[in-house]
Amino acid sequence: MRDRHLKYLFVLPALVLVLVTSFWPLLQSFWLSFREWKLSRARESRPLWEPEFDGWETWPYLLENYQRALEDDLLWNSVQVTTTFMFASVIVSVGLALGLALLLAPGGKFRLTVRTLLILPFAMSPALIGISWRFMFQPDFGLFQAVFGAVVPGLADVDWLGDPTFALIAIIGSDVWHWTPYLTLVFIGGLANVPRDAQEAAMIDGASSWRVFVDVTLPALIPVLAVGIILKSIFSLKMFDQVYMLTNGGPGNATQTLAHYIYFHGFKYYDMGYASAVSYLLVIPMLGLTWLYMKLVFLKR
């Protein structure tokens, strides 16, 4: 077989699979977003899980889902929760990771051992992290409450998961724990590319280590930092697993992220058309971030 056929034949299975498993559902949910599918009607006719039932109503539904979405205060609440969560988790995890990367970059046996530990949180299932954190934030026997209460007396009586603000902090905390070690490894990789002689030259010129960091190290790190920030933003925007396991959106809707809101409407109320419409609120910023990321990653090639 000639290469010019073979090379396309080789790409074909993967391409078809991606088109079928990712692009088809994307288009399909766009189509769904203009229709209505309600559990209420499903009950009247046949059980929901029975294949014959067609709960769809199209005309004259067109933009109703979108209109409803824009008028729903709870949706705007989840947009706000997602945004707060995203900014907080990105800033804290990237900041901590940068500091930790600088501390661990020099090498040596002790530092290399700690570096190995950094893999662990990221290999852990986010759902397990979520439920573990719920365990540790329990009011009477939770580890975190005991520890934080011992360090800061004011925190001793806080019901972490029962308070809107503290519940959000708990989720941010679990996510920072999950991501910071990973981002640290990414940044350590970036630090290896910082020109050593430029750093040393600045040191010899008598610059303080702070000035060396700001003038030499940081500029060289910016591409890697950007990759880390965008990647973390993308995954923060999709945040679901820990919310589901740790607070399930509560108390009330205080920690309900967009992904959780969509899940709730799609699979608790079985309001599929509406959930699809809302999901496009999530797709749009994601497209922007993905485009940025791809540009960054492929610009240098």
Partner: peptide
């Protein structure tokens, strides 16, 4: 790029049509 960008598609979006 098409193949790579799919890793950023939110799972909660594509699971709706999958479920149906």
């Amino acid at each position: 790029l098409m193949i790579l960008s799919t890793q950023f598609v939110p799972a909660v979006v594509i699971v709706l049509p999958y479920f149906l």
